[in-house]
Amino acid sequence: MSRTLSESDSKDLLAKYGIPFLPEVLISQADHVEDALVGMTGPYAVKLCGPNISHKSERGLVRLDINGVDAVRQACHELFDEARPEDGATGVLVAPMATGLREFIAGVSVDPVFGPTIVFGVGGVLAEAIADVTVRLAPLRRYDAMDMLGSLRSRSLLETFRGEPAVDLEALADLLCSLSDAAVGIDGLESIDVNPVMIVNGLPVALDALVEFSDVEVEP
């Protein structure tokens, strides 16, 4: 039986290994929205967050491009109403919207024969159809991380793209090496999803994360 961390806890854990996330706040009640948004400019992404929520988009628990305090508060009310008992303790995550044309997926998967592997591929809505994915065993050498980027069939996505600058390959390799460190460093790990990794001004930013443990006894 596996156990997942909430998005917020997943991000806190992975940030320690150097995965780049946006600054965001976790709100426990809709009334707290106004205070929470101080210093954060919109528009916002608003998501329900709980330890047992693993398929947010499919359940409609992600609200994007929300403008203004009132709209965020309204979204919070709606999301709290959507929460189910089995989701575990819930909060709402509010983050500034990130925009970029390119999305990738990165993560860790523990292979039954080969142990922890690092996964990287083209993300977005067409990801599964395109299935442009490359895998390596953890731990990665930096050479391996760069080779993963070069192994994508769609590696031209890493060059300048429709007015966006070329992807900083070193930064993207850093992200993969950070995942490798996490794969080696986290006991009882079953999988990590960092999805999507959006390219914002040429730099990778992880917008969502899910850490899954194989053993309910293990604490992060």
Binding site: S2, T4, S54, I105, A106, G107, V108, S109, V110, V119, G121, A131, V133, V135, E190, S191, I192, D193, N195, L210, E212, S214
Partner: peptide, 9 residues
Amino acid sequence: AAASHTGSL
């Protein structure tokens, strides 16, 4: 693992 997207990839 059922929960993980990367796992299926």
